[in-house]
């Protein structure tokens, strides 16, 4: 097993592209080291990307935010501008693991781990976040929902790494929120979760909405019918009821150690409704 610490994205890409055997990217390590400990992965090469210039920073640009692939979630929680613009994304990122894990884990890692229950992913998908990818064939940018393809699997080609997660500049009267269900108050993986992002007009009517569910299917679910239930309404009781029903209906969950199919279906609707109410309020709706 080799450990290497490149200082540029190009070097990281070459190392990963040319590696023989299993090569893995190390940013926060909160998934990778657990998988190594359990013997689920035995990498031949570990590429620690934290020494790459700028990859540990959150950049605010004219277009919005670029969250570097090595930015710990705790740092996202300390960035007031990001928190004000995308509170739902930040609260999702800050729900991953403990304070200790927060100091290390990254949303890029959370995305690439490709767990259906990843906390930050439904919030990022609802937010319309994109992944900036560097690879041996050049750079590309894709919506985050295109990264995980199945539990534990991503669409990234050999040698490709995500450099940053991109979030748009906020339109006026917008708000997002993320809620998850866990049996304890902390330290659990989401049994089911919901991220809602919406924009209102001046009258408080929803003009755009995205609703995403986690741990409800093999990959995160973007529920168009739930969004449609909100659009054109003031998130009234009837709209929320429809949204909840659409979410419950869209779920294709499994029975496992964390919950049952029935539980996940029911609670997906409950959480989506509650998240929508929070997002609506954050967008300035009453």
């Amino acid at each position: 097993m080799q450990y290497t610490r490149p200082t540029s994205v190009n070097d990281a890409v070459s190392l990963l592209a040319e590696a023989k055997g299993t090569a893995v990217v190390l940013a926060g390590g909160s998934d990778l080291l657990v998988r190594m400990k359990g013997g689920f992965v035995e990498p031949d090469l570990i590429v620690d990307i934290k020494s790459i210039d700028g990859i540990g920073e959150i950049r605010q640009t004219a277009d919005g935010f670029a969250i570097g692939a090595a930015v710990p979630c705790a740092v996202m929680g300390e960035d007031e501008a990001l928190k004000n613009a995308w509170p739902g994304v930040v609260e999702a990122a800050n729900l991953i693991g403990s304070k200790q894990v927060q100091g290390r884990c990254t949303v890029t890692g959370n995305l690439c781990n490709a767990s259906p229950a990843a906390d930050s992913v439904p919030a990022l998908v609802a937010a319309g976040a994109r992944a900036a990818i560097a690879g041996p064939g050049g750079n590309r940018t894709v919506p985050v929902e295109e990264i995980p393809t199945a539990p534990g699997k991503t669409s990234l080609a050999k040698g490709e790494i995500i450099e940053a997660i991109l979030l748009d500049k906020r339109a006026p009267r917008s708000g997002d929120a993320y809620l998850r269900f866990i049996p304890r108050t902390e330290m659990d993986i989401a049994v089911v979760s919901a991220g809602v992002n919406l924009t209102l007009d001046e009258q408080g009517v929803v003009t755009a909405a995205r609703v995403a569910l986690g741990a409800a299917a093999p990959t995160v679910l973007l529920v168009a019918q739930a969004a449609e239930a909100l659009i054109g309404t003031a998130a009234d009781e009837d709209a929320l009821e429809k949204l909840a029903a659409a979410c419950s209906a869209a779920c294709k969950p499994i029975d496992d150690k964390r919950g049952t199919v029935e539980f996940r279906k029911k609670v997906a609707g409950v959480l989506a409704r509650r998240a929508a109410m929070i997002a609506y309020k954050r967008a300035g709706g009453k």
Partner: peptide, 12 residues
């Protein structure tokens, strides 16, 4: 930063 030292490599 508070971390779990079991989730950090020695090399880091």
């Amino acid at each position: 930063r508070l971390v779990c030292s079991c989730l950090v490599l020695g090399a880091e």
